[in-house]
Each structure stands twice: as C-alpha cells, then as structure tokens.
C-alpha cells in the first residue's frame, strides 16, 4: 500500500471525524491545565478543511497527496488560531512538502520520512523537546514505533498501527510530566497528573491513519 491522493484525503477525513467525535474530551483535558479550547479550535479547523475538500476549489484528485496535505495545513493555519493552528498547520505543510508532485506515491518508508518532517516542523516552531508535555511527546514515540515497524519489514498498515500505539502510549505518558511549554507551563507542578491535550489530539491523528490503512 502506497500513499496516494486518495489515501491522503481519507486520512484527513478520518482525522476530521475523530476530532468531531472527541472534541469535548480534548476540551476537557485542556480545561484542566490550559484554557479549555483545544477541542473547539481543532473542530473549527477541520470543519474548514472538510469545506475545502467538499468545495468547488477542492484539491484535484490527480494533484498528488502532497498538495492535498499542504492545503490542509494552510487551512488549519488560517482557521484555528492559538498554538495548535500554527503547529498542526506547519506539520501538515511539512508532510505535504515531503511528498512532492510528479513522483511515484510514497511507500511506507517514504511516508515515514514525511511524518518525520512533520515532527521537525512542530519542534522548530514550538521549540519543544521531548518531555516538555506537548504533542511532541506523542509524535516522537509514534515515529519511533513506525520506523521500527518499517525496519522490521512492515508495510504501511502495520507501521501505522504501531505508530498509533506509540502515540497513545506517549500521550498517556505525559500525565506524570510537569509542563515546560505552552499554557500548562504556567501551572508549574500543578500540571502534573493531567494528560496533555495536544498529545491526545496527536494520538487521534495517528489512530486515524491506522484505521484507514487497516483492511
């Protein structure tokens, strides 16, 4: 299985559906250690992304997965605001840029490089390190698990499933951490014991990838 335009669109739509389903939980996590808008912000962003995909100016089906993911990122930057808009927006734009047009669809290894570019974009903009209690703490183990699976010979479905597991474990593992970036860092030690909402939404993103590539 390779990453073509169809798969990229399925992934984005699956993320939008997951955000729609889980936005209240994300907002609840954010209320505990942030300002209680993470779910509603992502929901607004992915509603706008769906409007683009379903609109008259939708990315062309033969435009390539990179163009579609770049467009998704641009839309998120334009519509979400807060920190999550630029962070997820830049991530999708970087993933898109790593899948340039006119090339054969990326295989599992190639898409792994694109996911790595997404993580680099997040870290460059947010200047967050692993352990800061941010979405980096979900994306990093997701990427590690994905790469390990590919190295062991796995195709995209198995690698994506491994990444989803890694992201969910990473999100859970943010609970004992004290936040050092973002609004939760204002709480100091009081941020301990809560799951980072950005790490939780990143887990949704990787679970969506696993769901659409599985059988």
């Amino acid at each position: 299985m390779d990453v073509d335009t169809r798969l990229a669109e399925d992934w984005v739509r699956a993320i939008a559906a997951a955000v729609e389903r889980e936005h209240e939980r994300l907002t609840e996590l954010d209320s505990a250690i942030g300002d209680g808008d993470h779910g509603s912000n992502l929901r607004r962003g992915f509603t706008a992304v769906l409007a683009v995909l379903d609109g008259p100016d939708a990315p062309a089906p033969d435009g390539g997965p990179g163009a579609l993911l770049t467009r998704t990122g641009t839309t998120l930057i334009s519509k979400v605001g807060g920190a999550s808009g630029p962070l997820y927006g830049k991530a999708f734009r970087a993933i898109g840029a790593a899948l340039p047009p006119g090339q054969p669809p990326a295989d599992a290894a190639g898409f792994g490089e694109a996911l790595a570019a997404g993580l680099r974009a997040v870290r460059d903009l947010g200047r967050a390190e692993p352990g800061d209690k941010t979405l980096v703490d979900a994306w990093t183990p997701a990427l590690e698990a994905y790469r390990a699976a590919v190295a062991a010979g796995a195709g995209l479905p198995e690698a994506a499933a491994a990444a989803a597991g890694g992201a969910e474990r990473g999100a859970r593992d943010t609970e004992p951490l004290q936040a050092r970036k973002g609004r939760a860092s204002y709480l100091g030690p009081r941020s301990v014991g809560h799951r980072d909402p950005g790490a939780a939404s990143t887990a949704l993103l990787f679970r969506a990838l696993a769901d659409i590539t599985a059988g």
Partner: peptide
C-alpha cells in the same frame, strides 16, 4: 481571535 484563542496570521 476567537474567545481565548489568538487571531490567525491572515
């Protein structure tokens, strides 16, 4: 921006 959410770059 939206309530408690920064404005977007555009």
């Amino acid at each position: 921006g939206e309530v408690f959410t920064s404005p977007v770059p555009d």
